[in-house]
Every structure is written in structure tokens, then in C-alpha cells.
Design a protein around this nucleic acid. Sequence first.
DNA 1: ACCTGAACACCGTTCAAGT
DNA 2: ACCTGAACACCGTTCAAGT
Lengths: 216, 216
Amino acid sequence: MTAETQPRRLRADAARNRRLLLDTAAATFAEYGTEVSIAEIARRAGLGKGTVFRHFANKDELIAAIVCDQLDRLSAAGTALLDAVDPTSALLEFMTLGVEVQSRDRSVCEAGVSIGVGDPGIQAATDRLFGTAEALTERARRQGGIRDDVTGQDVILLLRGAYQAAAPLARTVPELWRRYLAVIADGLLSTTAAPLPRPASTRPRPTDRNDGMPHG
Amino acid sequence: MTAETQPRRLRADAARNRRLLLDTAAATFAEYGTEVSIAEIARRAGLGKGTVFRHFANKDELIAAIVCDQLDRLSAAGTALLDAVDPTSALLEFMTLGVEVQSRDRSVCEAGVSIGVGDPGIQAATDRLFGTAEALTERARRQGGIRDDVTGQDVILLLRGAYQAAAPLARTVPELWRRYLAVIADGLLSTTAAPLPRPASTRPRPTDRNDGMPHG
DNA sequence: ACCTGAACACCGTTCAAGT
DNA sequence: ACCTGAACACCGTTCAAGT
């Protein structure tokens, strides 16, 4: 479930420290932004700052590991929604969940975008999430609830867009994203509209590698 | 037209240096990202790095000034589109233009979001842009081309969202944003859809000057 | 007024010395 | 194997000395 970049097994205390650092960093970044220093994270975790770099090659990798955790958590929530009775409203609930996750962790998510490109951990977690989203999307598509040229990847990218659209005013109007998610949802639901321009980007599906979770 | 935070008139050489720094920084940031050092910018402009801080209080303000230029440029393009014969397609063209501006200056735009909140220069330029967008939107609304609860601010924020949605894959699929802009456009065009949830955020229209509303 | 670069403070990252 | 903090390099920012 959790993204394990580590191939080897860690000594008990090291594993505990790694988890402690991840949790401390996630909480601190969420509250004060990703610009909090590594020294501060280490201090809060009660560890030396050298230890941070023993577990994560650099600050970006620490942030990446937190992002992976979030992506996997959302992926798990999506998988659970595959059992919902109404596929289309399940998909919309999934999108709502996705934006909420981002709202909770503003700065980490934003940093995640720039890091994401090129980080194999985030790539893999993203592909897993694409897979989950695709399964949800396929059900809704079969139901005829959404236009038939929409992919799971589209859904993930668009829910990111809904969040980002509202982000500049998040401080003053915290729930504005619901408005923009509604616009996007209407766009996805308009089954009568012309086909979308540009094909959806094709990325390797999680089925071809990394033993991802079974779905549908 | 251009954002003038400077109240006083600058000496000729100082004004030239300021412009030189803005252009050099814009070009360098666009190519290598906003993490390029101030020293490097100064070197490229053939000036001492102290000069950068004489014109811009800090690095964020330098980036903010570049963002203001871009916003004003887009605003000008939007104003020109007010003369177009078809209001609805003029609005869509404006949105397309808006995403293109961002694509050209990836990192500066992204940095602009986090800085934007709280920077009076960006606030003012944004309000100006909202005004332009509102004028374009109103024409389209009157024509009946788009749903009647959409504001100019919505249009700006949503075109940001379209760009951001496609941003993670911009390297590999540079034109993917067209796909997501199309989804959003369909959402805006669906005049038969239910009213949007959450009211559009009301921000001071560009008519009232920014004397800064204080908030923590 | 404006420009400059040396000097300062801070932060990410490394590494030799410790358990 | 893992932890640690002193040491290093780099960068944003300041400021006294120059034109």
C-alpha cells in the first residue's frame, strides 16, 4: 500500500525513525509550508538532521515520499468506491475526495507537481492512481453517465485543475473549488458535446508493471 | 498600462536598469526556472547584485513584477477582443490566449500563485484582468452563449485550472491543455445545466483602488 | 540618487566520528 | 547499520563606501 522505494529491510529503529520523520514532516509542512527547514523537522522529531538525509537523499525526496502516501491514500479511497451502486455519482464523489485531499495539504501538493516529473516514486504512485481512476471512469462510461472519450487520467488531472483554479482564493473562499469542480463535472457529463480535441495522453497503465492493486 | 509600483519618477539610468533587470530576469526564469540565483540575473544584466535589491525589495517582488507585466499583457489582448463580432468565440479565444501565456512562462506563473496572495501589485493587476474578463464574459452571457451565472473571475480562475491540469504532462504532451480547456468550455457552455453551487467570490472590482485591505 | 561587492545569516547537504 | 552535529557551499539580503 505505502510506497516502498527501499528495497532492503530496515532495522527496527531505522524504520521507526523513517515513519516518524515522514509524519512529522507531513504535519509541519501542512501547517507552515514546504519552506520549513530540514533542521526544524529533525528538531521536532527529536533526531539529528543528518538522519533525515540518511533516509531521504534530499529535501525533494522527503516531500515526494509524503506525496506518495497521499496519492496511495486517495487511490485506496477510490478502490472502495468501486462498490458503490451508482457509478457516476461514485466518480463525482471520488473527484470531490481528491480535491479535499489537496486542500488539506496545500503546499505539499504544489511542491509535488514540480517534483513529480522525474521522481520514480511519484510516477509509480500516480500511475496506480490513474489505474484506480480508470476503473471508476469505466463504470461511469458504461452506465452512459459521462462522455465516452474521458479517461481515468483525465479525471485525475481535471480534479487537480479544479483545486488549482480555486487555490488563489483558498484563504478567503475556502470552498470555492466546489464551484469549479461543478463546472468541470458538467463538462464531463455533457454527453452530447463534440468529441474532445487532442487524445488523452497514454501513459503505461499500472497493469503492465509494479504489481499494483487488483481492480476490476 | 504597465504595473507601476514606483510612485516617484526614476532617474534615466535607474529606469533603464530596472527594465533591463525585468527583461533579463523574465527570460532567464522562463528558460531555467525561478530558482536561478539573483547573482546570476545581475551578472547577465551586467549589474551588481546590490542593484537588484535597490529596485526590488526581494526576489519575490522581482517575480511579482514580471507576473504583473504578463497579466497586463493578457488584459490588453482581452480588451482588443471586445471588438470581435462573436462574443462567445471571443471569450473562448481569450481563454486560449490565457493558457498560452502561462505555457510560455511555466515557472514564473507557478511562483506567481504563491506570491500573488498578499502582493498588492499582483492583486491590482489581477483585479484589472478580472475586469477585462468580466466585460468579455458579459457580452457572451448577453448573447446567451454561456450559462448566466458565470463571472469574469470564474473565467480567469478556470483558465488557470485548465493550464494546471495539463501542467504535469506538459513536457511530454505540450498541447494537452487544449483537451482540458475544451472540457471546461463545455461546462461553461452547458446553459441547460443546474446552477453552480457556491457563489462566485466577490472581489473589489478594478473600479475601486487598492489601498490594501489588511488581513493577517 | 544610484551603484557596488564584501559581509552576514540561513539552509541544504556531506562526512568523519561515534553507538 | 545507523545516528549525529560540526563543517561546507550556496544563496538571499544588508550596508558602508563609492560615483
